[in-house]
């Protein structure tokens, strides 16, 4: 191992996982987490089984649980550090956004080559004796109105596959970045009594959610869908459909507690250690 590699290795240890290198630190973190657990007043369901196979347990991330209707703080929610505390791999976000946009391309660009342009079957003039340059077709590429050479050829898919682990890491990074930058809000339930915008709008105004993505766990509330349908920068998604592009498209992210648990369940499948 060269010196450079060794330094990188040390850095990785330091940056990636503090609790692995320093047992003392890990103990403190565990204690802090345990203390926090005791003081929590929340209707969030605490998962009984630790997702970690062994005894170490990094500190949970925490977020206030707000009431969507009133804006009142109801308690504290524990967010899993694997999902909401991922390292900010901005490069992964970029890679995923590029991939999402690429696979979304319709790829309909198409031009006609010389065989597809109408006409041009007849030789314009005879080969010899006219004093003009020899020509075979009026649709040859160098003619005005002629066919195009090497142009885009019809419907084409720009889809490609990213590794599954990169995709799920991307989602974790996006959620973590929103959390770290203070743009993530967890609410009790994404429901409104009526489908009228004028009743939902005060909620958005109160929270200053001018550009927001709201994510619910199971079926979306129909009233909320109708009430936000006509608002320009307000999106509503089920947690199944949550993706990096949609998250980055809007400034704020609002997750219902159900969505948080569903996302954790889904994304923790990659949690090996």
């Amino acid at each position: 191992m060269s010196v450079t590699r060794r330094i990188l290795w040390c850095k990785r240890l330091l940056v990636g996982s503090v609790w692995r290198v320093f047992p003392e630190a890990s103990r403190q973190l565990t204690i802090r987490a345990a203390e926090a657990e005791e003081t929590v007043v929340s209707n969030a369901h605490a998962s009984d089984a630790s997702p970690y196979p062994y005894h170490y347990k990094p500190a949970h991330k925490e977020a206030p649980l707000k009431s969507f209707q009133t804006g009142q703080v109801l308690g504290t929610v524990h967010l899993h550090p694997f999902v909401f505390g991922a390292p900010p791999r901005i490069d992964i976000l970029h890679r995923i956004v590029v991939w999402q946009r690429a696979k979304r391309r319709e790829g309909l660009a198409k031009v006609k080559d010389r065989s597809e342009v109408r006409g041009g079957g007849r030789k314009p003039w005879k080969q010899k004796g006219s004093g003009r340059a020899r020509q075979g077709s009026i649709r040859a590429p160098h003619w005005r109105g002629g066919g195009v050479v090497h142009g885009p050829r019809g419907p084409k898919s720009y889809d490609y596959t990213l590794p599954k682990k990169v995709k799920s890491l991307g989602l974790r990074v996006a959620l973590s970045v929103k959390y770290t930058q203070g743009d993530l809000t967890v609410v009790d339930a994404l429901q409104v009594p009526t489908h009228r915008v004028r009743e939902t709008f005060p909620i958005l105004e109160r929270e200053e959610w001018s550009s927001v993505l709201m994510v619910d766990g199971g079926e979306l509330d129909r009233n909320l869908c109708y009430a936000t349908r006509n608002l320009q920068k307000v999106d509503v998604l089920p947690s199944k459909g949550l993706n990096v592009y949609s998250i980055l498209l809007r400034d704020k992210l609002v997750l219902s507690i159900g969505a948080v648990r569903q996302l954790e369940q889904r994304l923790l499948q990659d949690c090996v250690d």
Partner: peptide, 15 residues
Amino acid sequence: WVRKALDVSQLPRVK
């Protein structure tokens, strides 16, 4: 590794 250690809480919103 530099990027990994990025403290995004101090940076403008990631968009």
